[in-house]
Amino acid sequence: MSGLLGPLDSEGRVPHGQQTRVAAFLISAHGALARQFGLALPAKFEAGWQTELNAQFYRESEIVSLLMRATTWVPDLALGYMAMSWEAAWLPTPNEGTADRSLWQAVHLAALAHAVHAGIRPAALLPLEANANDPFVMALRRIEIESGRLLQAQILFLKGPDLVPFRDTVSTVLESRHTELRKLWHDTLASVGIVRE
């Protein structure tokens, strides 16, 4: 087992089976975020932090669209079962600590998005000799750049004044999301022969 994608083909491209499985995981995670951001969008913004939901919704949708087109897909029978476990993991957590349903939904979304954007570094899986002009390679690098930008919004919200009274609950939710996502991501990578520390 290796810590990087590969072995690359003669043109420096990632094996199609690895592309399929890694892209399917990323599409599941970013697709779940896009769906949940879309559902969380209010008809009218009443708080400043709600404007960020709109931007996040479109950025997550762009990531999914990019991966759909940049990946060389191959049949993978294990994806059905794996996708069910991933989708179950993205479901909202029970409401704890606040009676404000929309605020709790935003906390859940920000915690999940923070875990996805901070916990998954897809470009770090690429060997140095990966073909920089390959669409899949470029997509993984683009996703990592976007994740860094999106992460800033989650940090600002989760550390913002609206959540000061719920700081302990938010920290618990965030830690739980990170632990869960890290396990799913590492299991997915291990299934294609990649071991990450």
Results as ranks from 00 to 15, higher is better:
Met1Pro: 08
Ala34Gly: 05
Gly6Arg: 01
Ile145Tyr: 14
Glu180Pro: 00
Asp100Tyr: 01
Leu39Tyr: 12
Ser176Tyr: 00
Ile155Phe: 11
Gln105Met: 03
Ile145Met: 13
His16Trp: 10
Glu180Ile: 02
Ser28Asp: 14
Gly97Met: 04
Val192Phe: 07
Val116Leu: 08
Gly160Phe: 04
Ile63Leu: 09
Ser102Gly: 06
Gly148Ala: 06
Ala113Asn: 10
Asp9Val: 01
Gln18Cys: 07
Ala43His: 12
Leu33Asp: 06
Ala106Trp: 05
His178Val: 06
Ile143Gln: 13
Ala78Pro: 00
Ala130Thr: 01
Ile145Cys: 12
Lys44Tyr: 10
Leu39Ile: 01
Val74Arg: 05
Ser191Lys: 03
Ser85Leu: 12
Leu112Asn: 03
Ala32Gly: 08
Met84Asp: 15
Leu33Ile: 04
Ala153Cys: 06
Val116Ile: 13
Ser2Gln: 13
Asp134Tyr: 05
Lys183Gln: 15
Trp86Glu: 09
Thr179Met: 07
Gly119Arg: 01
Arg121Pro: 10
Gln19Asp: 07
Ala99Gln: 10
His186Cys: 11
Arg21Cys: 07
Met82Arg: 14
Glu175Gly: 12
Ser65Phe: 09
Met82Cys: 11
Gln105His: 06
Ala40Glu: 01
Asn54Pro: 00
Leu103His: 03
Ala110Gly: 09
Ile143Gly: 08
Leu174Asn: 07
Ala70Cys: 06
Glu129Gln: 15
